[in-house]
Amino acid sequence: MSKRFCLLVLLGAAGLVHAAPDRTALPLSVPAGPGAIGSPAAPAAMPWQQLGAEQKRQRRSEYAAWRAMSESERARVRQAAERFAALPLAKQQELRDQFNAQDQAFRDGWRLGPLLGEHFSRLQGMFGYVPENQRDATLAMLRQLTPAQVSQLTLVAQRTPPQQRDTVRTEFLSVAPAQRDAWLARQVGR
């Protein structure tokens, strides 16, 4: 069973819960608590009125992350969730345990969808802690990228020294979509 499949399934399990949409911007890093993605304690069928404030916040956050994904990404997650549901309960629990054993920042990266989630551990240094005034633009830009662009961006993020990350990220945000391939090629070629 691939790690990627496990992560997609657990992301889907969180996205399939029923919650009211959150009207706030989706942060790049969301702290998790009880009922987090993939948690066996996540009571998907519990009525909204019976949830505590933290559980409601968590559900809203999960729902916002789900809604922010493209339909094709949600379809991939649904397919993975169906495959996951067909597994024996012991295997499901094993996969949940593997996911929950990962670093919180790694788990939170999967809320951004399958493409960004797969690469987020390598993007996190540059995009994991974005100033509030850049979050919406950053998320919108990241979601517009092709798989090839995300791969190149991971190289840029990994090669950029910590003291230059803010500058490089801000520069990338200012690049017009039609110029991103050229910008990435220049950065990767350095």
Rank of each mutant, 00 (worst) to 15 (best):
S2T: 15
F5V: 02
C6N: 10
V9F: 10
L10D: 00
V17E: 15
H18P: 00
A19E: 02
A20I: 05
D22P: 01
R23S: 14
P27C: 03
V30K: 03
P31E: 13
P40V: 05
A44V: 15
M46G: 00
W48H: 12
W48Q: 09
Q49G: 06
Q55M: 10
Q55P: 00
R59C: 04
S61R: 13
Y63R: 12
A65I: 05
S70R: 11
S72M: 06
R74Y: 08
R76Q: 15
Q79S: 13
Q79T: 11
A81P: 01
P88V: 06
L89H: 07
K91M: 11
Q98V: 04
D103H: 08
Q104Y: 02
F106P: 00
R107K: 12
R111T: 03
L116M: 06
L116V: 08
E118G: 05
H119E: 09
Q124N: 13
N133P: 03
A137S: 14
L139Q: 14
A140I: 07
A140K: 12
L142F: 15
L142M: 12
P147K: 05
S151L: 05
L155M: 11
V156L: 04
R159E: 12
Q163C: 02
Q163I: 06
R165W: 06
T167A: 12
V168S: 00
F172M: 15
A176S: 09
A178I: 12
Q179S: 13
D181N: 14
A182E: 13
R186Y: 05
